[in-house]
Design a protein around this nucleic acid. Structure first.
Lengths: 220, 220
DNA sequence: CGGAATCCTCTTCGATACTG
DNA sequence: CAGTATCGAAGAGGATTCCG
């Protein structure tokens, strides 16, 4: 009842027993964005049935990777959040996301997409070696209030933070355009001056933007 | 026929599709040790049937993660080796191994164990922050010829290499004793002077050995 | 909203046996 | 040695329904 067991004395096998179940990795990614309600998770993971979701959450809770929390009265509801052990998955998810980029390819019909995957991806795919000393405020248009991410290159790699600090260039674009700019799949200057994007600051800075990330997408 | 597909435009989902199948992660770990024959893999992964192994290898080969190679005439035989993309799994496996340590626990009856997992684990679990400037030659007793690993602490983290360079302390021990010493689960000085271990050099250096690794096992 | 319970289908696993 | 072929059993997945 507690999943498959690899008969091996190896910590990688233990990790694989937990994470190797279907949907567990995408589920962990969603929780990495922030605490979510059961219904949020169902919406964000189309194809995942409620019974399987309940099973996965129960197991992760039992293992101490996820914890339920009660939201304060106004919005009284249960949310699922990562525990310490769950947040410890970040390096693993980061490397999985990096490795998977080579298999990403262009979006397929029916593929789901969440705007707030972009801030997560920028965080996970930020270069850790020296990058150009440029700073950006990226505003991701979601339909609702834009997500804001501050991106700063530097000697010790790219740093991602909440919006706020000064910037060379701020630009506002739809999620997939941000991804295209970060990967270099879209031509920076042309896109910046196109209809879909608004910006303020130094437009030339956009040329350095892709260098801040480890993200090379096959051009669609 | 090509496995489950998560309907998501996300590189983590692509990685999960490939690595989420049963046995794939342990299989990748075995290939990370070095190229292996079909039969080697069956022996090293008890419980994995030949048909499933063949299926996994075929898929990984099709995806360009594993390649067959022919050994030169004397030992004419096929081996499976990681390609570039396969070797690119190292950071992911490293983080999975690190994360899984918290679930490792003591060996269970029936758990399989390969001596050469120890060099791999030392490599993957080496600390990346500053560690004590001590160097060790670790000789892992396998029953056959000992595996040798050179471990050196320093300002930029622990470095693992083939045996060779000078050392403060060299010691020879069975695999699980090496693991116990690295994790701190075994008392260094007592173990070193016990029956199971032979050493040369500065015995006091053993006290610094656990500090060179990110490995804290729950004491059995 | 947040699940638990059912039911049914479809994989997939693992064992075994067999072959070049 | 390096697989393929076959097969029965188990389990996972998905849809749906119902309930607090």
């Amino acid at each position: 009842m507690d999943g498959f067991r690899y008969p091996q004395f190896c910590s990688l096998a233990r990790a694989a027993e937990i994470l190797g179940e279907r949907w567990t990795l995408p589920l962990a990614r969603e929780l990495m964005v922030g605490p979510q309600r059961f219904t949020d998770l169902r919406r964000r993971l189309p194809g995942l049935s409620s019974s399987v979701l309940a099973t996965r959450l129960a197991r992760l809770e039992r293992l101490g990777i996820v914890a339920r929390e009660q939201l304060p009265p106004p919005a009284a509801s249960t949310v699922y959040a990562l525990t310490e052990a769950g947040r410890g998955l970040e390096p693993l998810l980061r490397e999985a996301m990096r490795w998977g980029v080579r298999f990403l390819g262009p979006p397929q019909a029916g593929d789901h997409f969440e705007p707030d995957w972009i801030p997560l991806a920028l965080r996970f795919l930020a270069r850790t070696q020296a990058t150009p000393a440029r700073s950006f405020e990226v505003r991701i248009e979601t339909g609702g209030s834009p997500l804001r991410v501050h991106v700063r290159g530097g000697r010790s790699g790219t740093k991602i933070s909440e919006a706020g600090p000064p910037f060379d260039l701020a630009f506002s674009a739809p999620p997939l355009v941000v991804l295209g700019l970060a990967s270099g799949a879209l031509d920076g200057p042309a896109t910046l001056h196109g209809d879909a994007v608004r910006f303020e600051g130094e437009p030339e800075a956009i040329r350095d933007f892709p260098a801040l990330f480890d993200l090379s997408l096959p051009v669609p």
